[in-house]
């Protein structure tokens, strides 16, 4: 049931995604603040399919040259492409403190045993500014293969970006900066180079009292 209702292709299903800040309170406890979060969902066949977005509406927000979003989509498979609109929670009190940990964790599952590569490109005005590439091996758990990218440290560029964003006095100013800030994550099978998931992330600042929010869309080309 998750196909078409969550971030899942026929080969790989994203279970969870979060970018967070851990602030130690005392030697034994810490506060965890989630900037963005996609939690575990258990869709059923009665749930509606994700809404679709025409991928051409967002091409220019992501790298357009060789290996860009257009080329990736043309290569397919089309059911591996998603757009996530995040409303990020920037309500945390950020101080420059080396004991703070900024991280990203994500989890995936598959019925296939494989080695995955996750490329995460941060883009400004559609141009890549930094890229992180991670390789994960599968663990067989409860009848399926699980991949965990656990507490991957956020890069210096992103930490500075969050701090600068936080310093802007008004939310509309933050949203104006975020209009030209995007992230493209591409998960591939390391050995076959097949695209397993391609997720385009776009952002606004949350105005909710309930923290980070998101909408997920299927990317299509009619």
């Amino acid at each position: 049931p998750w196909q078409g209702r969550s971030i899942a292709s026929s080969k790989l299903h994203m279970l969870e995604f979060s970018a967070f800040l851990e602030q130690p309170q005392d030697p034994e406890t810490f506060n965890k603040h989630l900037f963005v979060h996609i939690g575990q969902s258990n869709p059923t066949f009665s749930d509606p399919y994700l809404e679709a977005v025409d991928i051409r509406q967002i091409y220019d927000k992501f790298p357009e040259k060789k290996g860009g979003l257009k080329e990736l989509f043309e290569k397919g498979p089309p059911n591996a492409f998603f757009l996530v609109k995040f409303w990020a929670d920037l309500s945390a009190n950020l101080q420059d403190d080396s004991s703070f940990f900024y991280g990203v964790s994500s989890q995936y599952e598959s019925s296939e045993n494989m080695i995955i590569t996750s490329s995460t490109k941060v883009c400004s005005f559609g141009k890549q500014v930094v890229e992180k590439v991670e390789t994960e091996y599968a663990r067989f758990e409860n009848g399926r293969y699980v991949f965990r990218i656990h507490r991957s440290p956020l890069c210096e560029y992103m930490i500075n970006f969050i701090h600068k964003l936080k310093h802007l006095p008004e939310k509309y100013m933050m949203n104006s900066v975020l209009e030209n800030f995007t992230i493209l994550q591409v998960v591939t099978n390391r050995d076959t180079l097949e695209t397993l998931l391609c997720i385009a992330y776009v952002f606004e600042v949350s105005t909710s009292e309930h923290g980070a929010q998101h909408h997920i869309y299927r990317l299509v080309k009619d």
Partner: peptide, 24 residues
């Protein structure tokens, strides 16, 4: 070289794209 981009508000996107969910 920054290209002049069409603002997101002027693109064909679902209405939900601009509606922050209010989930607890």
């Amino acid at each position: 070289s920054k290209q002049e981009q069409v603002p997101m508000r002027k693109r064909q996107l679902p209405a939900s794209f601009w509606e922050e969910p209010r989930l607890a």
